[in-house]
């Protein structure tokens, strides 16, 4: 039984038909404690089957600890979306519901290395000189969450100093508790600045500015 129905598969094919460069989906499972690891592996393989340019690598987070460390992955299930280089795009949990869109957009962005961000935002990001970690907490049922998630991922594409972790909150309750996530989307910049809701790019830029000034 496939996870994606024929209509969705066709849409995914269309979306990925013209991606220029190869993309690797590196998926990390956890043999000890993982509710949806089987499904996440199946999902990335079904997505990869729609495009010659998308390949899947699969690891177990404890057994392949070196690989996990190399990609800065501390928990599973996780997907690292890498193109010609590693832009720092990570998805934690299964990208189901509306978050499936986030996965597809991240594949497009990692493949092309291009974004729709405007020049002002790009120039701000290019001028960064300190690392910026964007964590975006989402749920699969939240229609606005992909906006926040894709924005963070696009920012990571522009600057090597920015990385974007999109986290399915319900699958990582400990992390959601730690960050006191009670509403989504919630973006957290460098563990300090919080942005609630699907904010426009300039608001995220402001939050980055504040976080770096602190």
């Amino acid at each position: 039984m496939t996870l994606l129905n024929d209509e969705i598969v066709q849409n995914v094919k269309d979306m990925l038909a013209e991606i220029p460069n190869e993309v690797t989906l590196t998926v990390f499972t956890d043999d000890q404690n993982c509710e949806y690891c089987t499904e996440i592996v199946q999902l990335v393989n079904e997505v990869a089957a729609t495009s010659e340019k998308v390949t899947v690598e699969q690891y177990e987070i404890h057994k392949d600890n070196d690989r996990a460390q190399a990609l800065n992955i501390e928990r599973a299930p996780a997907i690292a979306i890498t193109g010609e280089r590693d832009y720092g795009l990570r998805f934690y949990g299964i990208p189901s519901g509306y978050e499936f869109s986030t996965l597809l957009h991240s594949i497009q962005a990692a493949s092309s290395g291009n974004t729709d961000l405007d020049d002002q935002v790009k120039s701000f990001l290019s001028d960064l000189n300190k690392p910026v970690n964007l964590q975006v907490f989402v749920t699969p049922t939240c229609p606005y969450c992909p906006r926040a998630a894709v924005l963070a991922m696009e920012m990571a594409i522009v600057s090597d100093l920015v990385n974007a972790d999109v986290i399915e909150s319900a699958e990582f309750p400990d992390l959601a508790n730690q960050y006191n996530v009670m509403g989504v989307p919630l973006s957290v910049v460098n563990n300090q600045e919080r942005i609630e809701g699907a904010a426009p790019p300039h608001m995220v830029v402001d939050a980055i500015r504040k976080a770096l000034a602190a």
Binding site: L3, V12, E39, G97, Y98, D118, P143, V150, P200
Partner: peptide
């Protein structure tokens, strides 16, 4: 139990 949705996820500004 899972469903998968594809929506436009970028701000419209053109």
């Amino acid at each position: 139990m899972f469903d998968f949705k594809i929506t436009d996820s970028k701000p419209k500004k053109q």
